[in-house]
Amino acid sequence: MSNATTLAVGFPDLSKMTVARQPHWRRWLAAAAILVTLAAIGRAFANGQIEWSYVSRFLTARVILEGIVNTMVMAVFAMALGIALGVVVAIMRLSPNPVLKSVAAGYTWLFRGTPLILQLLLWFNIALVFPTIGIPGLWSARAVDVMTPFLSALLGLGINQGAYTSEVMRAGMLSVDAGQYEAAKAIGMGRLRALRRIILPQAMRVVIPPLGNEFIGMVKATSLASVIQYPELLHSAENIYYANSRVIELLIVAGLWYLLVVSILTPLQMLLERRFARGFSQTGR
Protein backbone atom coordinates (compact mmCIF):
# COMPACT_ATOMS: atom_id res chain seq x y z
CA MET A 1 0.00 0.00 0.00
CA SER A 2 2.96 2.33 -0.56
CA ASN A 3 0.87 4.12 -3.19
CA ALA A 4 -1.91 4.98 -0.72
CA THR A 5 0.53 6.31 1.86
CA THR A 6 2.22 8.55 -0.69
CA LEU A 7 -1.13 9.96 -1.76
CA ALA A 8 -2.14 10.64 1.84
CA VAL A 9 0.83 12.88 2.58
CA GLY A 10 -0.36 16.32 3.67
CA PHE A 11 -3.99 15.18 4.15
CA PRO A 12 -5.68 14.15 7.45
CA ASP A 13 -6.10 10.38 7.71
CA LEU A 14 -9.86 9.75 7.34
CA SER A 15 -9.62 5.99 6.93
CA LYS A 16 -10.51 5.25 10.60
CA MET A 17 -13.40 7.70 10.95
CA THR A 18 -17.07 7.04 10.31
CA VAL A 19 -19.70 9.51 9.13
CA ALA A 20 -21.80 10.79 12.05
CA ARG A 21 -25.58 10.50 11.83
CA GLN A 22 -27.22 13.82 11.07
CA PRO A 23 -29.81 14.95 13.59
CA HIS A 24 -33.14 15.48 11.76
CA TRP A 25 -34.63 18.19 14.02
CA ARG A 26 -37.11 19.43 11.47
CA ARG A 27 -38.48 15.96 10.78
CA TRP A 28 -39.04 15.39 14.51
CA LEU A 29 -40.79 18.73 14.82
CA ALA A 30 -43.05 18.05 11.86
CA ALA A 31 -43.94 14.59 13.15
CA ALA A 32 -44.78 16.01 16.57
CA ALA A 33 -46.99 18.70 15.03
CA ILE A 34 -48.85 16.10 12.98
CA LEU A 35 -49.38 13.86 16.02
CA VAL A 36 -50.75 16.75 18.07
CA THR A 37 -53.15 17.68 15.28
CA LEU A 38 -54.31 14.08 14.89
CA ALA A 39 -54.85 13.80 18.65
CA ALA A 40 -56.94 16.97 18.62
CA ILE A 41 -59.09 15.68 15.76
CA GLY A 42 -59.44 12.33 17.50
CA ARG A 43 -60.50 14.08 20.73
CA ALA A 44 -63.06 16.13 18.85
CA PHE A 45 -64.58 12.98 17.39
CA ALA A 46 -64.49 11.16 20.73
CA ASN A 47 -66.22 14.04 22.56
CA GLY A 48 -68.51 15.06 19.68
CA GLN A 49 -72.05 13.85 19.32
CA ILE A 50 -71.11 10.42 18.06
CA GLU A 51 -72.43 7.28 19.67
CA TRP A 52 -69.46 4.96 19.10
CA SER A 53 -71.47 2.01 20.32
CA TYR A 54 -73.68 2.42 17.22
CA VAL A 55 -70.58 2.40 15.00
CA SER A 56 -69.32 -0.86 16.44
CA ARG A 57 -72.79 -2.38 16.44
CA PHE A 58 -73.54 -1.56 12.80
CA LEU A 59 -70.02 -2.27 11.53
CA THR A 60 -70.97 -5.94 11.19
CA ALA A 61 -74.72 -5.58 10.71
CA ARG A 62 -76.16 -7.89 8.08
CA VAL A 63 -77.35 -5.12 5.78
CA ILE A 64 -73.94 -3.44 5.90
CA LEU A 65 -72.13 -6.71 5.15
CA GLU A 66 -74.48 -7.36 2.24
CA GLY A 67 -73.79 -3.81 1.12
CA ILE A 68 -70.03 -4.30 1.09
CA VAL A 69 -70.42 -7.59 -0.78
CA ASN A 70 -72.61 -5.88 -3.39
CA THR A 71 -70.11 -3.06 -3.65
CA MET A 72 -67.24 -5.47 -4.30
CA VAL A 73 -69.25 -7.58 -6.75
CA MET A 74 -70.18 -4.47 -8.70
CA ALA A 75 -66.63 -3.07 -8.58
CA VAL A 76 -65.13 -6.32 -9.87
CA PHE A 77 -67.66 -6.87 -12.67
CA ALA A 78 -67.74 -3.24 -13.77
CA MET A 79 -63.94 -3.09 -13.77
CA ALA A 80 -63.77 -6.33 -15.78
CA LEU A 81 -66.18 -4.84 -18.30
CA GLY A 82 -64.17 -1.61 -18.29
CA ILE A 83 -60.89 -3.40 -18.94
CA ALA A 84 -62.40 -5.55 -21.70
CA LEU A 85 -63.85 -2.47 -23.39
CA GLY A 86 -60.66 -0.52 -22.74
CA VAL A 87 -58.46 -3.12 -24.44
CA VAL A 88 -60.77 -3.35 -27.46
CA VAL A 89 -61.09 0.42 -27.79
CA ALA A 90 -57.34 0.94 -27.39
CA ILE A 91 -56.68 -1.62 -30.14
CA MET A 92 -59.26 0.10 -32.35
CA ARG A 93 -57.66 3.45 -31.68
CA LEU A 94 -54.22 2.20 -32.70
CA SER A 95 -55.50 0.39 -35.79
CA PRO A 96 -54.78 1.78 -39.24
CA ASN A 97 -58.48 1.64 -40.09
CA PRO A 98 -59.95 5.18 -39.92
CA VAL A 99 -63.49 3.94 -39.24
CA LEU A 100 -62.41 1.93 -36.18
CA LYS A 101 -60.25 4.83 -35.06
CA SER A 102 -63.09 7.35 -35.13
CA VAL A 103 -65.57 5.00 -33.46
CA ALA A 104 -63.06 4.54 -30.63
CA ALA A 105 -62.35 8.24 -30.33
CA GLY A 106 -66.10 9.02 -30.33
CA TYR A 107 -66.73 6.49 -27.56
CA THR A 108 -64.04 7.98 -25.35
CA TRP A 109 -65.28 11.49 -26.07
CA LEU A 110 -68.89 10.68 -25.21
CA PHE A 111 -68.41 8.69 -22.03
CA ARG A 112 -65.54 10.70 -20.62
CA GLY A 113 -67.32 13.93 -21.40
CA THR A 114 -70.49 13.42 -19.34
CA PRO A 115 -70.88 12.95 -15.58
CA LEU A 116 -70.98 9.37 -14.38
CA ILE A 117 -74.07 9.95 -12.27
CA LEU A 118 -75.91 11.23 -15.34
CA GLN A 119 -74.95 8.12 -17.29
CA LEU A 120 -76.19 5.90 -14.44
CA LEU A 121 -79.54 7.70 -14.40
CA LEU A 122 -79.81 7.43 -18.19
CA TRP A 123 -79.23 3.66 -18.17
CA PHE A 124 -81.71 3.20 -15.35
CA ASN A 125 -84.36 5.21 -17.16
CA ILE A 126 -83.65 3.90 -20.63
CA ALA A 127 -87.18 2.47 -20.73
CA LEU A 128 -88.42 6.00 -21.30
CA VAL A 129 -86.60 5.97 -24.66
CA PHE A 130 -86.89 2.31 -25.65
CA PRO A 131 -89.96 0.77 -23.97
CA THR A 132 -89.08 -2.64 -25.38
CA ILE A 133 -85.69 -3.99 -26.26
CA GLY A 134 -84.55 -7.17 -27.97
CA ILE A 135 -83.56 -8.81 -31.21
CA PRO A 136 -86.37 -8.46 -33.78
CA GLY A 137 -88.12 -11.79 -34.33
CA LEU A 138 -86.03 -13.65 -31.77
CA TRP A 139 -86.52 -12.19 -28.35
CA SER A 140 -87.86 -9.05 -26.80
CA ALA A 141 -88.66 -7.77 -23.35
CA ARG A 142 -89.89 -4.69 -21.58
CA ALA A 143 -86.95 -2.42 -20.80
CA VAL A 144 -88.19 -1.73 -17.25
CA ASP A 145 -87.87 -5.44 -16.48
CA VAL A 146 -84.42 -5.79 -18.00
CA MET A 147 -82.85 -2.63 -16.63
CA THR A 148 -82.57 -3.71 -13.04
CA PRO A 149 -80.48 -1.55 -10.73
CA PHE A 150 -77.70 -4.14 -11.04
CA LEU A 151 -77.61 -4.11 -14.83
CA SER A 152 -77.93 -0.33 -15.06
CA ALA A 153 -75.10 0.15 -12.58
CA LEU A 154 -72.93 -2.43 -14.35
CA LEU A 155 -73.42 -0.81 -17.75
CA GLY A 156 -73.07 2.72 -16.44
CA LEU A 157 -69.93 2.09 -14.40
CA GLY A 158 -68.31 -0.40 -16.82
CA ILE A 159 -68.84 1.58 -20.00
CA ASN A 160 -67.67 4.77 -18.35
CA GLN A 161 -64.63 2.95 -16.98
CA GLY A 162 -63.85 1.59 -20.44
CA ALA A 163 -63.42 5.13 -21.75
CA TYR A 164 -60.73 5.85 -19.15
CA THR A 165 -59.12 2.42 -19.29
CA SER A 166 -58.74 2.62 -23.07
CA GLU A 167 -56.43 5.58 -22.63
CA VAL A 168 -54.38 3.74 -19.99
CA MET A 169 -54.15 0.71 -22.28
CA ARG A 170 -53.22 2.81 -25.27
CA ALA A 171 -50.39 4.42 -23.31
CA GLY A 172 -49.23 0.96 -22.22
CA MET A 173 -49.23 -0.39 -25.77
CA LEU A 174 -47.38 2.66 -27.06
CA SER A 175 -44.72 2.11 -24.40
CA VAL A 176 -43.73 -1.22 -25.98
CA ASP A 177 -40.82 -0.91 -28.40
CA ALA A 178 -41.82 -0.94 -32.09
CA GLY A 179 -39.17 -3.64 -32.65
CA GLN A 180 -41.41 -6.03 -30.71
CA TYR A 181 -44.23 -5.70 -33.29
CA GLU A 182 -41.71 -6.31 -36.06
CA ALA A 183 -40.18 -9.34 -34.39
CA ALA A 184 -43.69 -10.75 -33.88
CA LYS A 185 -44.57 -10.11 -37.52
CA ALA A 186 -41.30 -11.65 -38.63
CA ILE A 187 -42.28 -14.97 -37.05
CA GLY A 188 -45.56 -14.84 -38.95
CA MET A 189 -47.92 -13.39 -36.35
CA GLY A 190 -50.92 -11.36 -37.44
CA ARG A 191 -51.77 -8.09 -35.74
CA LEU A 192 -54.18 -9.50 -33.17
CA ARG A 193 -52.02 -12.44 -32.19
CA ALA A 194 -48.99 -10.13 -31.83
CA LEU A 195 -51.04 -7.86 -29.61
CA ARG A 196 -52.31 -10.69 -27.44
CA ARG A 197 -49.09 -12.70 -27.10
CA ILE A 198 -46.36 -10.08 -27.31
CA ILE A 199 -47.54 -6.51 -26.88
CA LEU A 200 -50.27 -6.68 -24.21
CA PRO A 201 -48.27 -8.82 -21.74
CA GLN A 202 -45.48 -6.24 -21.90
CA ALA A 203 -47.94 -3.35 -21.70
CA MET A 204 -49.43 -4.88 -18.52
CA ARG A 205 -46.23 -4.10 -16.65
CA VAL A 206 -46.80 -0.43 -17.35
CA VAL A 207 -50.58 -0.29 -16.93
CA ILE A 208 -51.01 -2.15 -13.63
CA PRO A 209 -50.15 0.82 -11.37
CA PRO A 210 -52.63 3.16 -13.11
CA LEU A 211 -55.22 0.35 -13.35
CA GLY A 212 -54.86 -0.27 -9.61
CA ASN A 213 -55.57 3.38 -9.16
CA GLU A 214 -58.63 3.14 -11.41
CA PHE A 215 -59.91 0.10 -9.52
CA ILE A 216 -59.69 1.95 -6.22
CA GLY A 217 -61.62 4.75 -7.89
CA MET A 218 -64.17 2.20 -9.08
CA VAL A 219 -64.74 0.79 -5.57
CA LYS A 220 -65.71 4.27 -4.44
CA ALA A 221 -67.59 5.16 -7.63
CA THR A 222 -70.00 2.26 -6.99
CA SER A 223 -71.45 4.43 -4.22
CA LEU A 224 -73.01 6.57 -6.97
CA ALA A 225 -75.17 3.57 -7.87
CA SER A 226 -77.09 4.27 -4.67
CA VAL A 227 -79.07 6.86 -6.67
CA ILE A 228 -80.51 4.08 -8.83
CA GLN A 229 -81.36 1.86 -5.86
CA TYR A 230 -78.48 -0.58 -6.22
CA PRO A 231 -78.03 -1.94 -2.67
CA GLU A 232 -74.33 -1.22 -2.30
CA LEU A 233 -72.59 -0.15 0.90
CA LEU A 234 -73.56 3.53 0.98
CA HIS A 235 -77.14 2.74 0.00
CA SER A 236 -77.39 0.25 2.88
CA ALA A 237 -75.96 2.76 5.33
CA GLU A 238 -78.45 5.37 4.11
CA ASN A 239 -81.36 2.97 4.50
CA ILE A 240 -80.36 2.35 8.10
CA TYR A 241 -79.98 6.00 9.05
CA TYR A 242 -83.28 6.90 7.40
CA ALA A 243 -84.78 4.53 10.00
CA ASN A 244 -82.70 5.37 13.11
CA SER A 245 -81.35 8.88 12.34
CA ARG A 246 -77.78 7.86 13.31
CA VAL A 247 -76.39 9.62 10.24
CA ILE A 248 -72.78 10.28 11.26
CA GLU A 249 -72.38 6.87 12.89
CA LEU A 250 -73.46 5.03 9.75
CA LEU A 251 -71.39 7.22 7.48
CA ILE A 252 -68.40 6.36 9.65
CA VAL A 253 -69.26 2.66 9.35
CA ALA A 254 -69.34 2.95 5.56
CA GLY A 255 -66.13 4.99 5.52
CA LEU A 256 -64.30 2.38 7.63
CA TRP A 257 -65.33 -0.38 5.24
CA TYR A 258 -64.18 1.55 2.15
CA LEU A 259 -60.85 2.24 3.86
CA LEU A 260 -60.42 -1.43 4.77
CA VAL A 261 -61.13 -2.65 1.25
CA VAL A 262 -58.77 -0.13 -0.33
CA SER A 263 -56.04 -1.06 2.17
CA ILE A 264 -56.31 -4.70 1.13
CA LEU A 265 -56.11 -3.82 -2.56
CA THR A 266 -52.67 -2.21 -2.39
CA PRO A 267 -50.69 -5.37 -1.52
CA LEU A 268 -52.72 -7.29 -4.11
CA GLN A 269 -51.55 -4.82 -6.72
CA MET A 270 -47.94 -5.39 -5.63
CA LEU A 271 -48.37 -9.13 -6.24
CA LEU A 272 -49.74 -8.50 -9.75
CA GLU A 273 -46.94 -6.09 -10.54
CA ARG A 274 -44.36 -8.66 -9.58
CA ARG A 275 -46.07 -11.25 -11.78
CA PHE A 276 -45.89 -9.06 -14.87
CA ALA A 277 -42.37 -7.82 -14.19
CA ARG A 278 -41.15 -11.28 -15.18
CA GLY A 279 -38.03 -11.04 -17.33
CA PHE A 280 -37.62 -7.30 -16.87
CA SER A 281 -34.96 -7.34 -14.19
CA GLN A 282 -32.13 -9.63 -13.19
CA THR A 283 -33.89 -10.69 -10.00
CA GLY A 284 -37.58 -10.41 -10.91
CA ARG A 285 -38.30 -14.05 -11.53
Partner: peptide
Amino acid sequence: RLKTGMVFQRFNLFPHKT
Protein backbone atom coordinates in the same frame (compact mmCIF):
# COMPACT_ATOMS: atom_id res chain seq x y z
CA ARG B 1 -43.51 -14.33 -44.16
CA LEU B 2 -43.17 -17.84 -42.78
CA LYS B 3 -40.74 -18.57 -45.60
CA THR B 4 -38.27 -15.95 -44.39
CA GLY B 5 -36.55 -15.56 -41.05
CA MET B 6 -35.28 -12.19 -39.93
CA VAL B 7 -32.55 -11.24 -37.48
CA PHE B 8 -32.53 -7.65 -36.32
CA GLN B 9 -29.71 -5.34 -35.41
CA ARG B 10 -31.17 -4.83 -31.94
CA PHE B 11 -32.16 -8.53 -31.40
CA ASN B 12 -35.79 -7.72 -30.49
CA LEU B 13 -36.19 -10.79 -28.30
CA PHE B 14 -39.44 -10.95 -26.36
CA PRO B 15 -38.32 -9.77 -22.89
CA HIS B 16 -41.17 -11.47 -21.02
CA LYS B 17 -40.30 -14.91 -22.36
CA THR B 18 -37.32 -17.16 -21.66
